[in-house]
């Protein structure tokens, strides 16, 4: 058999390559993934995307993967996805914003059960950033409610971080006053009375505080506070951890409608799962998000202050309820801020 060309063999080769192409349509392709996220995760995901791209290249050597990022206030970002921004994954500040997207049919209702730990691969909490040497002597939430303290915090209507801030203060007041709602309302009102300017996103507030030099204390994500201190000099700011704060769980989800349309489900799911791997958890810790993985959390134990944390489910009965009570039109926040 020395035929230079065998029709049979050729047909066989065609059949094999065809079936291969059908079975694995994405053998080598230009693929893009859009991660729509909230403000303070910019630096985390810039790093994480590099790490994940390297990992993806190992198993998909032919692919040219481009991961794109979009950042803004969490509520605003959710709104954009609802309005048609084609996010393959959303990594937002709080579960309610993803619920909103799910309610419009973009994401399956059980999204929070599809990944471990309430679909929140990392956690954070709410702390205070003050001027160096803490000239106003701010120690705990009470100091924020005092007359004459200028507080900087974003608008809970548009910012996820701002809602965590609000609820952290409320939770503290409840604990302190034995569950008295009226007293809690009064307390939180006093804090917002000290906050005349509300930016739309957490990063906007940070810039207001650190760059424009407005205010005595910034209520901020822990990671955001550390980032500001590292970027702009430890000689300018101090971080104050309150006695009690909230366990903030920023969740992540694959946007079903978009990935099914674009054929990016496998990629999007791998992307989010990578957040839970030791490598992903290390990156979270590096950017001052508290890792879920116990071994890695233990490794970075000294990086995070010990603080008594309560969850939103314990104190407020979950995000949907909290959202409705506090942040809907005419809700508690509107009542507080209107007068």
């Amino acid at each position: 058999m020395s035929a230079p060309f065998s029709l049979k063999r050729f047909a066989g080769a065609v059949a094999v390559s065809l079936s291969a192409a059908l079975a694995l349509p994405a053998v080598a392709a230009d693929v893009t993934l859009l991660n729509v996220s909230y403000d303070p995760t910019r630096e985390l995901y810039t790093d994480f995307n590099k790490a994940f791209s390297a990992e993806w290249a190992k198993t998909h050597p032919g692919d040219t993967l481009t991961i794109r990022q979009s950042h803004g206030g969490s509520g605003k970002q959710a709104r954009s996805v609802i309005d048609g921004l084609e996010a393959d994954v959303v990594t937002l500040a709080l579960a309610y914003d993803i619920d909103e997207i799910a309610d419009r049919g973009f994401i399956a209702q059980d999204w929070q059960k599809r990944l471990p730990d309430n679909a929140a691969p990392y956690t954070s909490t709410i702390v205070f950033l003050v001027r160096k040497g803490n000239p106003k002597g701010i120690k705990d939430w009470d100091d924020l409610a005092k007359a004459g303290t200028k507080v900087v915090t974003p608008n809970p209507k548009t910012s996820g971080g701002a809602r965590w801030n609000f609820l952290a203060a409320w939770g503290y007041a409840l604990k302190k006053n034995g569950g008295d709602e009226a007293k809690a309302k009064e307390f939180v009102k006093a804090i917002y009375k000290n906050a005349p300017v509300l930016d739309t996103g957490a990063r906007g507030s940070t810039v207001t505080f650190v760059e424009r030099g407005i205010g005595d204390v910034l209520i901020a994500w822990e990671n955001e506070a550390y980032l500001a201190v590292n970027e702009l000099g430890p000689d300018k700011f101090d971080i104050v951890t309150p006695s009690i704060s909230i366990l903030a769980e920023p969740p992540v989800a694959v946007v079903d409608k978009v990935v099914d349309k674009r054929g990016t489900r496998a990629l999007a799911e791998a992307y989010l799962k990578y957040l839970y791997t030791p490598a992903g958890q290390e990156l979270s810790a590096k950017h001052y998000y508290r890792p879920r993985n116990e071994a890695i959390a233990a490794k970075y134990k000294d990086k995070f202050a010990d603080v008594q944390l309560f969850t939103i489910d314990q104190v407020f009965g979950g995000w949907r309820k909290a959202q409705k009570t506090f942040f809907s039109d005419g809700g508690v926040f509107d009542q507080i801020y209107a007068n």
């Binding site: 859009l34 794109r68 979009s70 954009s80 921004l85």
Partner: peptide, 15 residues
């Protein structure tokens, strides 16, 4: 122009 474009942009970096 900032405002009008900001609303419709989606803020996707590089895009």
């Amino acid at each position: 122009e900032f405002g009008a474009v900001s609303v419709v942009s989606g803020h996707i970096r590089g895009l």
